[in-house]
Amino acid sequence: MRRTSVRTFVVAAFATAFVIGPAAAADYPARPITMVVPFSAGGPTDTVTRLVAEAMGKDLGQQIVVENVGGAGGTLGAGRVAKADPDGYTLLLHHIGMATSATLYRKLPYDTLNAFDYVGLVTDVPMTLVARADFEPTDLKSLIEYAKANKDKVTYANAGVGAASHLCGMLFMSKIETVLTTVPYKGTGPAMTDLLGGQVDMMCDQTTNTTNQIKGGKIKAYATTTKQRVASLPDVPTAEEAGLPGFEVGIWHGIYAPKGTSPEVLAKLTASLQTALKDPNVIKRFADLGTAPSSEAEATPDGLKAKLSSEIDRWAPVIKAAGVYAD
């Protein structure tokens, strides 16, 4: 008798805290979902994740907890999710680094194209080509001429090997067929500080970090790396308008699940992502970041899968030509 009551108590106590066993897709999600961000808390990717996680959690009726698993350019967090149970309770939100690390790292602990199922694209944050406020060239054309004429003098800052600012710089240099002096920093924060202080000449960074500085007149912008002008920076031309077609880079973000997640769960997650991307608060915050939610067609498994494989193919030659690897 006593054993039974103890057992009942234990069962009751544990049952309130969590649920064990494979949750049927029908009652998914039955407990909080963990969304892994492969970067430290407070960065732009973390911000995007928290915004989306909150909105998706509201829609799913379960909290989505953001877990920061930083390290090794995002590959540690991605590796963690690749090995996680495909039960829909561990997801990954990663940016363009998902595609570039496939080339930047010669030995990855996971197979980028085959280790994940896809939920959908979230957003594509544009980048801007900027320079210190008192830098001579006035527009992109004169900048290119100036850079070619003074290639020993112009310094280009980036946020370290594999960072978006590094990729953007590599693409710029390959487009204008000129190699500039690259000054690497640990993260965009210190790089931006030195740009503001006039210690370096130019850099390329996402609108999240540059919009306010450009509007405040602390740095000058030559072009955005997008097809259309950015809504928050209407006066800045696109690279194509300014005379450098094909100079397009965006920091796109996607949500992934471990390979083997059931189609029903994936469908639920995709639907929830689509709802979240229509949330007025998310749209407004994204606009503040200088970006917009992905379209309904992109915020799908196929949309993300196509983006990932095309981006892998696109960056591999650029990275290989530069001969830069992160390991």
Partner: peptide
């Protein structure tokens, strides 16, 4: 409680 603990816990 993680996956290794599951066998030791009373099923629900």
């Amino acid at each position: 409680f993680g996956p290794w603990s599951a066998p030791f816990l009373p099923g629900v």
